[in-house]
C-alpha cells in the first residue's frame, strides 16, 4: 500500500542520508604504507652515504684517515634522521 506522502518522503530522505554517509566515509585517504617505508629507509641510507662520501674525500685530501670519515658518518646519520623527521612531518600534513 502507498504510505502517506510525508512518511514516504521522510524514509527517502533517510535513505539518501544513509547512502551519502556510506559514500563519504572511504574518501578519507588510506595511507600507503609501502611507499612510506621505502621513502624513509632510502632517506636514511642516502644521507649516511653522502656523509661517508664527504668524509672519505676529505680524508684522502688531508691524509687524516679515519678522523673525518667518523665525523661525517655521524653527521650523515644525524642528517638522515632529520630527513626522516621531515618526511614524517610532510606526510602528516597531507
Amino acid at each position: 500500500m502507498i504510505k502517506a506522502p510525508d512518511e514516504n518522503l521522510k524514509s527517502l530522505k533517510k535513505k539518501i542520508q544513509e547512502a551519502k554517509e556510506k559514500i563519504e566515509e572511504p574518501v578519507v585517504e588510506a595511507p600507503k604504507p609501502l611507499g612510506k617505508i621505502m621513502k624513509v629507509v632510502v632517506e636514511i641510507v642516502a644521507a649516511m652515504a653522502v656523509g661517508l662520501g664527504i668524509g672519505i674525500l676529505i680524508d684522502n685530501y688531508f691524509d687524516t684517515r679515519p678522523f673525518f670519515i667518523i665525523v661525517f658518518f655521524l653527521l650523515g646519520s644525524a642528517a638522515g634522521i632529520m630527513n626522516v623527521f621531515r618526511v614524517a612531518k610532510s606526510l602528516q600534513n597531507h
Binding site: 632517506e43 642516502a46 644521507a47 652515504a49 653522502v50 656523509g51 664527504i54 661525517f72 653527521l75 650523515g76 644525524a78 642528517a79 638522515g80 632529520m82 630527513n83
Partner: peptide, 8 residues
C-alpha cells in the same frame, strides 16, 4: 648536517 641533508 643541513648541507649533507641537502646533498642527499
Amino acid at each position: 648536517i643541513e648541507i649533507i641533508s641537502y646533498l642527499s
